[in-house]
């Protein structure tokens, strides 16, 4: 009986400890802006889970209206320039995934009504992988991918 109580006590203290850490690192800062940041999507371990967490469904159609500009061979995985251009009408969101990263979702861009279907940034890639661009237009999801060979990974020490 005593050991049971001790177990419950340990569980309780562990839980509060985790919350305390989250508060101190600002993860639980009550800001409406942060609420848009999908923790589940960014911590998803594979592409489909990430897409589902981000957009609510993983049903994507391949599209030739999405162009990914990225190097065929990236010498340094810590800095891989990636540009995504889409000519799909009404694109409201563009996201980028590197499918072999521990957490594939790298970035999601919400486009305003006057924003063109173009974003460019630099991402980290752990190893050779496909860069997958997902575009949301209306209720539909479109995707395209491009393989990037990475000679030096950029996600670990």
């Amino acid at each position: 009986m005593t050991s049971m109580k001790r177990r419950i006590f340990l569980k309780g203290s562990l839980a509060t400890g985790a919350v305390g850490i989250a508060v101190s690192t600002g993860l639980l800062t009550p800001r409406s802006a942060i609420a848009a940041w999908s923790k589940a999507a960014f911590e998803a371990k594979d592409v489909n889970a990430g897409v589902s967490a981000l957009y609510g469904s993983a049903g994507m159609a391949d599209s030739d209206k999405i162009q990914i500009k990225a190097p065929d061979i990236a010498e340094n995985g810590a800095v891989v320039p990636v540009s995504v251009t889409t000519s799909i009408d009404g694109a409201s969101s563009i996201s980028m995934f590197a499918d072999k990263n521990a957490t594939p979702l790298t970035a999601e861009f919400n486009l305003g009504p006057s924003t063109e279907g173009y974003v460019s940034t630099r991402i980290k890639m752990g190893k050779t992988a496909n860069v997958i661009a997902v575009v949301k237009a209306g209720d539909k999801l479109y995707s395209a991918k491009k393989e990037v060979k990475v000679t030096i990974g950029g996600c670990g020490g």
Binding site: A36, W37, F42, A98, T106, A107, E108, G112, R122, K124
Partner: peptide
């Protein structure tokens, strides 16, 4: 015009 949500996999 643009809201970007980034994960840690964006380069330094």
């Amino acid at each position: 015009v643009m809201t970007a949500n980034w994960g840690p996999a964006i380069s330094k």
